[in-house]
């Protein structure tokens, strides 16, 4: 069951990669990449179940805490045209 969900998530992420490739504007790509980041965080957490090794949960936790930083930085750049204001 876990393996099935893992493969399903990988397939989902691969389908979502289409929006990252063809997205007409850069915000489209960012939104799609953020979606993929969320999905892959759960993927890493599921790996902990699959391998029965809790170490993967630490990696997923780091990803969950820090994956919003890039979107914020991009948002700042779009809104003001520069990062440091």
């Amino acid at each position: 069951m876990t393996a099935f969900v893992l493969w399903g998530l990988l397939l989902t992420a691969a389908v979502g990669f289409w929006r990252v490739i063809v997205g007409p504007t850069i915000p489209d790509r960012i939104v799609a990449a953020d979606t993929l980041a969320t999905i892959l965080t759960t993927f890493i957490a599921l790996l902990a179940v699959y391998f029965e090794n809790a170490v993967f949960l630490d990696i997923a936790l780091a990803f969950a805490v820090l994956s919003f930083a890039d979107v914020l930085i991009m948002a700042k750049y779009f809104e003001h045209g520069e990062l440091h204001r």
Binding site: D58, A62, V65, L66, A69, K76, H84
Partner: peptide, 26 residues
């Protein structure tokens, strides 16, 4: 005891201060 250490934790702390600049202004 677990994955991580001084370099990694320090990087997370530095990320927080960088986000200060982004969110609250320099």
């Amino acid at each position: 005891l677990s994955p991580g250490g001084g370099f990694q934790g320090g990087s997370v702390m530095a990320t927080v201060t960088i986000l200060f600049c982004v969110i609250y202004g320099s």
